[in-house]
Simulated scan of single mutants.
Amino acid sequence: MRENIPVIRLRNKYGRLVARDGVILCFFMRRSHQEVVPAVWRALQTYRRAIPPQSLGWYVSVDGDWPPLDDRGWEAIRKKMLERLSGAMWHVELAEDPGDAGSYFFNYEGRKLEDPLFSRDEGATTAVSFSFPTEYLLEHGPAHLRALALELARELPFSFGYASLAFVSHQGAWFSALEEIIDLLPRYLGFDLYRLGETGEVIGTRARGAYWLTFLGQPLLGQLGGSEALLHALSSFPEVSFQPLEGERLLVCLGEWPEAIDTAQPLRPAQYRVLAQLLEPFLYEERTGWFSRDKDDMRRWLRRLFE
Rank of each mutant, 00 (worst) to 15 (best):
N4P: 01
L10T: 00
K13Q: 11
G15K: 06
R16H: 05
M29W: 13
H33R: 10
T46E: 00
R49N: 13
S55K: 04
L56E: 02
V60P: 11
V62E: 11
D63P: 04
G64M: 10
D65C: 15
P67V: 10
D70Q: 14
D71K: 10
G73D: 14
E83A: 04
A88L: 00
M89D: 15
H91E: 02
V92A: 06
P98C: 06
D100H: 15
S103V: 01
Y104F: 12
G110F: 13
K112G: 07
K112Q: 14
L113G: 01
L117M: 15
T126P: 00
T134F: 05
E139H: 09
A143Q: 04
E155A: 14
L156F: 01
F160G: 04
L165M: 15
W174G: 01
W174L: 06
W174C: 09
L178F: 03
R187M: 09
L189K: 10
L189N: 08
G190Q: 05
Y194S: 13
G197P: 05
E198P: 00
G200R: 02
G209T: 06
W212V: 13
W212R: 03
L213G: 00
L221T: 10
L224F: 00
L224S: 12
A229Q: 02
L231N: 15
L234C: 12
F237D: 11
F242G: 07
P244H: 07
V252C: 01
A264F: 10
A264Q: 15
Q271A: 15
L275E: 12
E286V: 07
D294L: 09
K295H: 02
M298K: 04
L305C: 06
